[in-house]
Design a protein around this nucleic acid. Structure first.
Length: 889
RNA sequence: GGGCGACUAGCUCAGUUGGGAGAGCAUCGGCCUUACAAGCCGAGGGUCACAGGUUCAAGCCCUGUGUCGCCCACCA
């Protein structure tokens, strides 16, 4: 016994050792290195870079399993295959992590100063930033690890700067004072996408604003009363007669000594409240627009930290929420507060820290996205980019149609610092790819660099080409751009996917990827979001420890239907672990019989027609499996691929084929034995290759102990379609034999015949051809059903005291000499009769309907007729059987 | 307010152009049959949310209703 055999003979699959072994092997052999060879098709994926602060969660596990499946598949097919790994510097998120760390030492980033702080973040990245990369490796992700990139590394920084400068020079980046979303905690601007709106139970405050001349008042409503301190107008609808006289008068703003104008704006909804709207251009997006239209003053009353500033007068220094309370109390005291209502509305929160964000005016940098978006929309419309599943097209278009300029500057320290300088002497703004030494306009050397950094998504938008060396024209770009497919979760369709399209099309003049596959979000088995506080988190690392990585990967694949959410049930993982073990045991069994074989035994499959039926059958089924797996992978139907493998391996290969060929494998007939060995080896090899992309560890291990010299499966040939193996006739014949076997087993089970008890059975089959087929498999049938005697008859007297089973037009009898449970047998037949009757009724209905006969395609009609005659024949047997049983009783 | 999705077996879900309702788990019965009890064999279980419509034929297409969920949005 060789060492290998000894290992495979371990009764159950011990994944832990095996996984470590292959992880090491792949690493040492650089198995995933992206090759570039002339004449090979290319397949490439860039990983959605996880945050460098991240730890692997089940969503990552799904996302990367799917990418890995495709990557391994194409690598096995011999394509030039590259999967680029890497991480995202995740500006705000990472800065927060390091700030929290500093806080434990009672320090703030201001204590360190910018340079030292950024240094600290790099340090952190050096120590902890590799966590998620190692976890991805552990998952078996077949990335080219030598090409790992980071959105802040030197090459990518160069790309970022190049893009920024070019866009600026093209007029697509501009700086301006506009309203943006502001996080008072992170102390930075946010893009529209970085604000999450949550429905919140709040209050609607109705405040009475007196007319400046004292002749009356108008009531306005707001959910944020503190902003009234920054009101610079009241807006009413131009056609609203209630207020048409107010244009001349103006409003005396309570709690202040200011008089503010009334403006007429069509935006105002006359039906809402009193039809009058307070206008705070500096703290509300709508009001900002109204302010622009009517040239209203802008008045910021809050600072960057959400604290009221000097413009808020006596409220200066109060936190925004404290101020709200005080303003309300004062209004009430002074009689300006009309009423307070409960009010549900959406409140914006920072997506990083969940703090309530504030719309506020601020001097920021923007990308003018409309021209870029137009190119992306065009590429999707004309099919240069396909989105799977299709349901996302509408959402994509509607978002792109309503897209607004993208605020890209962030007031934090960790990120790509904006390459812009202002001349202290002449005020010139300089944007260059090389750091300027003096002002291009006045020559002054007093240049001040912009302190803001870029939105993290700015650099990730360049990921598909920046990782490949752009702006240099590299071989990687030539071979692997555009990438083949982007696999990601739908929640970053707009953050990231759409922006990659824009940047890719603009700078490469070519789509960044041909396909986008958007997978579901993983939730717990009840459909709830996984969260630490709910305690329903399924940790992939724990799952891998408990069930094995292959089992987890297979489970995620099986769940990856093209829906919106995946409800992950841990029981399923358990079930698929059993499946992995099943493969292991099947291989263990096979190896007992083929370990001594050399490659020549496999030649038997070149002429399938010369082989016994069961081998032809498994080859035909294997051919179908190859087809289904290939087309499933090509069309991103991952769950179908998993299911095809599962059904084929377990229920066809193991349950039927292996059982059936045992006799041959133990046989003295050298030819029969060799045929079985040859086909078994070929089919097992095919199975291992087919499922390797999903379950790489167990397949590598088994593959390595199969006879002959074998290199890793990672570069093995993925099974080609095998037309010559296909044989529908053989499949039909096997189905008949299986039907007979199942029938006999059914009788045994119903009659509670102990397995060790060998009994007799015979079938009556009027069809000569079928009868001969069955008869020629007497030995196999007897073997698989433990019969002492089995005969096939064209006709015979049908015994009443026998258990029966009717398989289409064939009757199976097991004589039981007085032991027949008549009641039970009758009940069985009655159940069967009902089923047949129902079906017959439907079919007869169709066949007697002239419209059906006229309109339905001929093959459908023929099929119905076939079904009818089969059912008719069966019905006859059922009635006969009932009569015989009744005669007994 | 707009858009999208879900509703199929007890549970979690498949079901690709309309043409015989499926899987896993769970349940029931029988088995340690020399790869596997993490297993084998057998069985039961569904008004495909509801109501209409198109069609010879609908889980699938159309219209409407209900329940749940998600996304987007400038009614303060």
């Amino acid at each position: 016994m060789s060492m290998n055999e000894e290992k495979l003979l371990s009764k159950g699959y011990e994944f832990s050792e095996v996984e470590d072994k292959w992880l090491q092997y792949w690493q040492e052999n650089n198995s995933f290195s992206g090759k570039i060879e002339e004449g090979c098709p290319s397949f490439s994926i860039v990983i959605p870079p996880p945050n460098v602060t991240g730890v692997l969660h089940v969503g990552h596990a799904l996302n990367n399993t799917l990418q890995d499946i495709l990557t391994r598949y194409h690598r096995m097919c011999g394509d030039n295959t590259l999967w680029v790994p890497g991480t995202d510097h995740a500006g705000i998120a990472t800065q927060n992590v390091v700030e929290r760390q500093l806080a434990t030492e009672n320090k703030s980033r201001d204590d360190l100063g910018r340079d030292a702080f950024v240094e600290k973040v790099w340090e952190w990245r050096g120590e902890k930033g590799g966590t998620i990369i190692n976890q991805l490796k552990r998952l078996g992700a077949s990335c080219d690890w030598e090409r790992e990139r980071f959105t802040m590394d030197e090459g990518l920084s160069k790309s970022v700067r190049e893009v920024f400068v070019r866009l600026y020079k093209e007029g697509l980046i501009y700086k301006g004072d506009y309203i943006v979303n502001w996080c008072p905690r992170c102390n930075t601007a946010l893009s529209d996408d970085e604000v999450e709106h949550e429905d919140t139970k709040g209050k609607l405050y109705h405040i009475r604003y007196p007319y400046a001349d004292g002749s009356g008042s108008v009531v306005v409503a707001t959910t944020r009363p503190e902003t009234m301190l920054g009101d610079t107008g009241v807006a009413v609808h131009p056609d609203d007669e209630r207020y048409s006289h107010l244009g001349e008068i103006g409003i005396k703003l309570p709690l202040t000594d200011r008089v503010i104008p009334v403006v007429f704006d069509g935006h105002v909804d006359r039906e809402f409240g009193t039809g009058a709207l307070k206008v705070t251009p500096s703290h509300d997006r709508d009001d900002y627009e109204i302010g622009l239209r009517h040239d209203l003053e802008r008045m910021k009353v809050m600072d960057d930290k959400g604290v009221m500033n000097k413009s808020a007068g006596e409220y200066c220094g109060l936190d925004r929420f404290e101020c709200r309370k005080k303003v309300v109390a004062d209004l009430e005291r002074l009689g300006f507060l009309e009423k307070i209502e409960d009010y549900d509305h959406a409140v914006g929160h920072c997506y990083r820290c969940k703090t309530v964000s504030e719309p506020t005016t601020s001097l920021q940098w923007f990308v003018s996205v409309k021209p870029l978006a137009a190119k992306a929309v065009e590429a999707v419309r004309d099919g240069r980019i396909n989105i799977y599943p299709q349901t996302w097209y509408n959402t994509f278009y509607s978002w792109m149609d309503n897209i607004r300029d993208w605020c890209i500057s962030r007031q934090i320290w960790w990120g790509h610092q904006i390459p812009a300088w202002t001349c202290a002497d002449c005020g010139e703004l300089i944007v260059e790819s090389v750091d300027p030494v003096c002002c291009s306009k006045c020559g002054s050397e007093k240049l001040m660099r912009e302190t803001d950094v870029l939105d993290t998504w700015f650099s990730s938008a360049l990921w598909p080409f920046s990782t490949m060396g752009w702006p240099e024209q590299t071989p990687e770009l030539k071979t692997f751009y555009p990438t083949s497919v982007l696999i990601t979760s739908f929640d970053i369709l707009f953050f990231w996917v759409a922006r990659m399209m824009m940047m890719g099309l603009h700078f490469m003049d070519e789509v960044p990827f041909k396909d986008v596959y958007l997978h579901a979000l993983v939730r717990d088995k009840h459909g709830k979001k996984m969260s630490k506080s709910t305690g329903n988190v399924i940790d992939p690392l724990v799952v891998m420890e408990e069930y094995g990585t292959d089992a987890m990967r297979f489970t995620l694949t099986a769940f990856a239907a093209q829906g919106r959410e995946i409800k992950l049930d841990e029981d399923r993982i358990e079930g698929y672990r059993h499946f992995i073990n099943k493969i292991w045991n099947a291989a263990r069994f096979a190896l007992m019989h083929v370990s001594d074989c050399d490659d020549s035994v496999k030649r038997v499959v070149d002429k399938p027609d010369d082989l016994p039926l069961v081998h032809q059958w498994i080859l035909s089924r294997t051919a179908s499996a190859i087809e289904n797996v290939r087309s499933g992978l090509d069309e991103y139907r991952f769950n179908d691929v998993a299911s095809e493998n599962y059904q084929f391996i377990w229920h066809e290969f193991c349950d039927w084929y292996l059982e059936w060929i045992k006799a041959d494998l133990f046989s003295d007939d050298a030819v029969a034995k060799q045929q079985a060995q040859g086909v078994l080896l070929v089919v097992l090899e095919t199975i291992l290759k087919l499922i390797h992309p999903i379950t790489p560890f167990v397949t590598e291990e088994i593959w390595s102990v199969l006879p002959g010299e074998r290199s890793s499966l990672t570069t093995g040939d993925f099974p080609e379609r095998q037309e010559s193996w296909k044989n529908p006739e053989v499949v039909a014949q096997m189905e008949l034999l299986m039907g007979i076997i199942t029938g006999i087993r059914n009788i045994r089970s119903e009659a509670e015949v102990h397995p060790s008890n060998k009994i007799e059975a015979f079938v009556i089959c009027e069809d000569k051809e079928k009868g001969e087929l069955i008869a020629s498999f007497t030995a196999a049938v007897s073997d698989m059903t433990r019969l002492s005697d089995f005969t096939v008859l064209a006709e015979a007297e049908k015994p009443a005291d026998a258990a029966t089973y009717i398989y289409n037009d064939i009757e199976i009898f097991v004589p039981l000499k007085g032991l027949v449970d008549v009641e039970n047998e009758l009940a069985k037949l009655s159940r069967e009769r009902k089923k047949v009757e129902t079906k017959l009724k439907q079919i007869n209905g169709k066949l007697s309907n002239s419209k059906f006969l006229d309109n339905a395609p001929a093959d459908v009609v023929a099929k119905e007729q076939e079904k009818k005659s089969a059912l008719d024949a069966k019905m006859v047997k059922i009635i006969e059987g009932e009569e015989r049983l009744n005669s007994l009783a």
